[in-house]
Simulated scan of single mutants.
Amino acid sequence: MTHVPTTLLGDGLVVSALGYGAMGLSDVYGPAEERESLATLHHAVDHGVTLIDTADVYGAGENERLVGRLLAERRDEVTVATKFGIALGGSDSGTDAMTTRGDAGYVRSAADASLKRLGIDTIDLYYLHRRDVSVPVEETVGAMAELVRQGKVRHLGLSEVTADELRRAYAVHPIAAVQSEWSLWSRDVERAVVPAAAELGVGFVPYSPLGRGFLTGTLADRSAVSGDWRSGLPRFSGDAFDRNQAVVRAIQGIAAELDATPTQVALAWLRVQGERLGLPVVPIPGTRRAARVDENIRSLEITPDAEQLGLLSELAEGVVGSRSDHDDPDWVSETREDRV
């Protein structure tokens, strides 16, 4: 098994070079079995993965509680990251619609609730999950900075922010990491957000580095996602699903040349791309299976050559469908960045 080295993100935060995204341990991709989920978390930590990523919205809090069971036994071995800012419906809404909240009072209450569910005194990395555009980012980050001063949070992160929002936030308090979708088929962040992070010394934590499973080559037809929310995503819907298989076939070809899997190639590309663009990159692939954790870790042994990297870097141009999974145009940074 490959030894997982450490990486320095921003603000002095040291984590494993590959993290673990826990979202899928809730019922996001169909029913999850808690005992298997917890065993997979332990397996990841056993093999050197220290950064475990969750959020208060995953499983309506149950995901944090599950991670809390891991922390109850292995707190000193884990850098726990969680997120706030997405609220499910409202007290009188009667719906599960997702809205954004970034006001100072909500920041404080959300942090206290996450600490309770996780069963810990301090969150290592606390992210703003989605920007509430009705609230100045300075107000939201100012409230997050107060949590640091109170000892409830160690480091701050931002998810799906623009380059300008990142700079404005950083002027209030150092930012350790930006989290956004970034992969072989989602590269819009490279235009402005990644350069801004590199300029400020902020690390990058790509979520969905495997395209929500599509880039692994394990989703041969639409029936593979018929039981979960991906079936309604633009890149997984209708004709787009079949046309995007061309991207997978190209990755599979290069994987064969490297005696690797498509998963390992996709993760290795992100690592090398981060080195090329001058900033630390720590992907957080998620899985329910221990064997997949091992596969992900072995991506650290893979380095495509210059020709292979060139071919991989062309793939995003042929992707069909938006990366956004939400009707709100402000849900991801790409649309706000395009308006700048």
Rank of each mutant, 00 (worst) to 15 (best):
D328P: 15
D328C: 13
A290Q: 14
S237V: 07
D327C: 08
W331T: 10
R149Q: 15
T99E: 03
A197C: 14
P136N: 13
R323W: 06
V28Y: 09
L118P: 15
D124Y: 03
A171E: 12
A246I: 07
H326I: 10
G321R: 04
L200V: 09
M23K: 06
T261Q: 02
E146D: 14
H326C: 13
A260E: 04
L277R: 10
L66R: 08
V340S: 13
R222I: 03
E77S: 10
P174Q: 00
G203I: 01
L125W: 04
V57S: 06
D56K: 01
V189W: 01
E317Q: 15
S109P: 13
L309F: 02
A32L: 05
E334S: 13
G19R: 02
E33F: 02
V205L: 01
K83T: 13
E257R: 10
Y170R: 10
R101K: 14
S91K: 13
D112W: 00
L9Y: 09
L115C: 04
R289I: 04
V15G: 13
G310Y: 01
D338H: 14
G213L: 04
A60P: 15
Y20G: 07
P5W: 00
R149T: 15
H47C: 04
I302Q: 09
E334R: 13
H47W: 05
F84L: 15
S93Q: 09
T261P: 09
G61Q: 03
E160G: 12
A240L: 05
Q308C: 06
I284C: 08
L18V: 03
